[in-house]
Amino acid sequence: MGPKVIQFDTERREATAPALRRVTLIVPVYNEEASIALFLARLSPVIEEASPLARIDILFVNDGSRDRTERLILAEAERRPGISLLNLSRNFGKEAALTAGLHHAAGDAVIPLDVDLQDPPEVILLMIRRWLDGAKIVNARRNRRDGDSWLKSRSAGAFYRLFNAMAERPIPRDVGDFRLMDREVVQAIRQLGERSRCNKALFSWVGFETEEVLYDRPARAAGETQWSYWKLAKLALDAIFSSTTVPLRIWTYVGMLMALVSLVYSLALFVRTLVFGIDVPGYASTVILILVFGGMNMFALGIIGEYVGRIYTEVRQRPLYVVRSHHIAESAEA
């Protein structure tokens, strides 16, 4: 009798082999017609290199662009597999566009990134490997910010210090929206219904096992940034006032301190009047007191107004965004 021959059923093995896990890239865009082709050309070799590890698809979120951004993405979707497009009815802002992407992304993990290539696509490979090793969140920390001006870099550092000094849950410094999040993390974030959002703070609030990769942040590859200093300041205020009540608590302490100082000063004036009699009151000291207390009151009312305005936004329960159309890639439906 000859040796026993063992035959392998290759078709059965292929059918029962575990499918590759899927990663969805969420790319908010607003008037980025100059960046679309460059972004996809840079991303293509990364997708090819990642193919043994995970299957990558792209979800563009068009935040009401007024240029040719939508047409260019649809044209690319016809030539390249795995590109979907979510069109919002108008410009709702990046935080809303990113939230829409999180609600519509179908991957086992998601990675938000900018189309301007300041988030290098090559870092995606490092994130995926950390994720497959068990991390639920993989943050991309900016090691260098060569693409940012001196003022923007310094103001960003000041924001992180101020926010982390007040917030109940700090956010990692120099980490933007560019990170990988497991499906479990995304499901937790979807349950958060804030209208005044800072997604970076929400990403940190949900917790989960977190790891980190470092990268150097370059300058924009094309186009112009849509973030003015006014918009950045508004985002910073949204982050602070939506994540902590410390500013209100501070003014409670300030009010208590000023009440104590006023009581002591009143007692001192009373004793002085009893001992030395009544003198002519000083005009300068009266004006100074009025200006100081008036300014402090206005500042305190401004902080209260910030919170009241956000309460008004929340109680109206308007949707964070409105979808005009959704073009889903065939491979994304699988």
Score class of each variant (00 low, 15 high):
7 Q>W: 10
272 R>T: 07
142 R>E: 09
87 N>A: 15
146 D>S: 03
199 N>L: 11
247 P>F: 00
175 V>E: 02
142 R>S: 01
37 A>H: 08
229 Y>W: 06
84 S>M: 15
216 D>H: 05
258 M>E: 06
253 Y>V: 04
101 G>Y: 04
167 A>T: 03
263 L>R: 04
3 P>K: 14
308 V>I: 03
88 L>D: 12
66 R>T: 15
40 L>N: 13
333 E>H: 15
50 A>L: 14
248 L>R: 00
320 L>P: 10
115 V>Q: 08
215 Y>L: 11
257 L>A: 09
92 F>N: 12
8 F>R: 02
277 G>M: 12
171 I>S: 03
189 I>V: 13
34 A>M: 07
228 S>P: 13
319 P>W: 10
122 E>D: 03
201 A>V: 07
201 A>R: 04
164 N>G: 02
114 D>H: 06
270 F>C: 09
174 D>S: 06
194 E>W: 08
284 A>H: 01
330 E>G: 13
242 S>Q: 01
16 T>H: 05
6 I>H: 08
232 L>T: 12
82 G>F: 11
62 N>L: 13
256 M>P: 00
19 A>Y: 14
167 A>Q: 00
167 A>I: 02
72 L>S: 10
85 L>E: 08
264 V>G: 11
171 I>C: 05
170 P>V: 02
327 H>I: 14
47 I>M: 14
101 G>M: 06
294 G>F: 02
3 P>D: 11
231 K>F: 10
88 L>C: 15
329 A>H: 14
123 V>A: 10
242 S>M: 00
279 D>F: 05
70 E>H: 09
116 D>I: 04
310 R>W: 01
241 F>I: 03
204 S>H: 04
